[in-house]
């Protein structure tokens, strides 16, 4: 099973034919040594893509990363308060029991669990475990299921 990804510089036009966008060629050989093009085709239009479950699992990994990036501020604030004094600890404990505090607590717990589980899946993929089409689909489903179960268990145990 090859793990290389074929990168093509052919751009498909509206009528279905493909147009070579790379450097000039002669009998398939590049005539330019500099092959890096600034106008090489990219497709990162999120609204034009199809969204199989692997893509949803992948973008969720990113979204939870951004959530954690912002969430570190809340975690540091709570930890700072709780570590400052016994009164500060009581204050932090009360904050977490407020509706907004609960939202932040469970939101961050969910994001953290997802990001770690998806990260472990990513490491497995690095070693080519489950990087077939069906393996990737199974991995995406497992990531979501494991996250929900682990978050629910941790949420009950920590609360």
């Amino acid at each position: 099973m090859p793990h290389t990804q074929r990168v093509t510089l052919d751009r498909v036009t509206a009528d279905g034919s493909s147009v070579w966008q790379g450097p000039p060629r002669l009998f398939g050989l590049n005539l330019e040594t500099e092959v890096m093009k600034t106008d090489r085709p990219v497709n990162l239009n999120l609204f034009a893509m199809s969204w199989p479950i692997m893509a949803i699992a992948s973008i969720t990994h990113r979204i939870t990363g951004v959530v954690l990036f912002v969430g570190v501020a809340f975690a540091l604030y709570a930890l700072d308060l709780a570590m400052s004094s016994p009164a500060g600890f009581a204050e932090a404990a009360a904050l977490v029991r407020e509706p907004f505090g609960m939202l932040v607590f469970f939101g961050l717990l969910l994001a953290l669990v997802y990001h770690v589980v998806a990260g472990i899946k990513h490491l497995l993929l690095d070693f080519h475990h489950g990087d077939t089409l069906e393996g990737a689909r199974m991995g995406a489903i497992l990531t979501i299921v494991v996250t929900i179960v682990v978050t629910a268990v941790l949420g009950v145990m920590l609360w």
Binding site: A82, M83, S85, G88
Partner: peptide
């Protein structure tokens, strides 16, 4: 509590 937190970290 506060003491346990400080003792750990």
């Amino acid at each position: 509590d506060h003491g346990a937190l400080v003792a750990f970290f």
